[in-house]
Nucleic acid binder design. Structure first.
Lengths: 155, 155
DNA sequence: TTGCTCCTCACGTCACGTGAGGTGGC
DNA sequence: TTGCTCCTCACGTCACGTGAGGTGGC
C-alpha cells in the first residue's frame, strides 16, 4: 500500500478488489475476459492489474447483483443502461423491479422447501426415538407441504 | 396407458415420471447414468425405461431435495442412509437438520438482496421522476442495506 | 405410412475453479 | 535468495441441456 497515492491516483490490486467485493480473483479475471468489465489497465513493468476507485464501485454493484441471483447477461444489460445515465432511468427501474419479483417468488418457494427439510428432520427424529405417534403427525404435515409444491398460487 | 395393469405390475414411462417429479427426462437419464438411481429396468422389445411405483416415490423425494438446493453427492448420501432404514434414523435427522440450517441462512441473505433490488428500483424510479429528495432518502436506505451485507450476524 | 415417444452418444453451456509453469518487486 | 503476489493458458467441474440420427408400437 504505502505511498500509492503520492503522485498517482489511488488504485487497488486484484486481491484487494476480491476482498472488497467478495468475488474471487478468478471471477474478476473471468468478467474481464468475457467483456463484462472493460479492460483493466496494467502496471507497466509487472503487468499486474490496477483497478481505479470507479471500477471498484462498479464491481461492488455487480457483486450485489450476482448475489441476488442475476445472470451475467443481465449484469451486462445493467451496465449498458448505466452508461446511458438518467435517460435510461425508466428501464433501470423495470430491470430491478422484474428481478425483485423473480427473487421474491424464489424466496417463497425456498421457504416451503425449508419447511419440508425441517419436517423431514422431525420425521427421522420421531423414528429415531421410536415415537410412532409423532411420526404419523409429521407425515400428515409433510403431505400437506408436498401438496403445496404443486400449487404455488396459494402462497 | 390402457391395460398396463392387467397382468403386470403398474409402471411409468420416463415422460410420466418427468411430469410427476418436475425433473426433466434428461435429468432422469443423467441421475441413472451417474448411478444416483440404480439401473431402471427396460421394456424387452423397445428398450424403453419402465419405472415402478417405489422408484417414482424415491425420485419425487430426490426432486424435493434438489429443489431445496441439495447437491447430488448429498442426495447420494441420503439414499445410502435410506437403504440402512431406521437404524440410520439419527444420521438422517442430522442430514436434514444441517441442510435446513444452511437453507435458512441462505433465505435470510436472499431477503436482504431482495431489499437491495427493491431499493434499486425505487432509486431509478426517483431519478426517472426527477425527485431528488426521494433519491437521497433511497440512497441512505441503500447504504444501510449494503452495510448489512458484510455483517450477517445481525439478522 | 405417419406421429409420437423413446433411445444413445457426443458435444455444448453456464460460471467459474484449479493447476502448471513462470515473473516482478520488496 | 526467499516469499509473496501476480500473470497466462489450458483443462476441469457441476449439473445438466441440446441436437443428431435412429428405433418401436399404435
Amino acid at each position: 500500500m504505502a505511498l500509492r497515492t503520492v503522485d498517482e491516483a489511488s488504485w487497488f490490486t486484484i486481491q484487494e478488489v476480491a476482498r472488497r467485493s467478495g468475488l474471487s480473483e478468478a471471477t474478476l479475471r473471468y468478467y474481464e475476459r468475457i467483456g463484462l468489465l472493460s479492460t483493466v489497465p496494467r502496471d507497466a513493468s509487472s503487468g499486474h492489474r490496477r483497478y481505479d476507485a470507479a471500477t471498484v464501485e462498479t464491481i461492488e454493484s455487480l457483486a450485489c447483483l450476482r448475489a441476488a441471483g442475476m445472470r451475467v447477461e443481465d449484469m451486462r444489460h445493467y451496465l449498458q443502461l448505466l452508461a446511458r445515465g438518467d435517460e435510461a432511468a425508466g428501464e433501470q427501474r423495470q430491470l430491478f423491479a422484474r428481478h425483485a419479483t423473480r427473487l421474491a417468488t424464489q424466496i417463497a418457494q425456498l421457504q416451503l422447501r425449508l419447511e419440508y427439510l425441517q419436517l423431514k428432520a422431525q420425521l427421522w427424529d420421531a423414528r429415531d426415538r421410536g415415537d410412532s405417534d409423532a411420526e404419523l403427525r409429521t407425515i400428515t404435515q409433510l403431505l400437506n407441504v408436498i401438496e403445496q409444491f404443486s400449487r404455488p398460487e396459494e402462497r
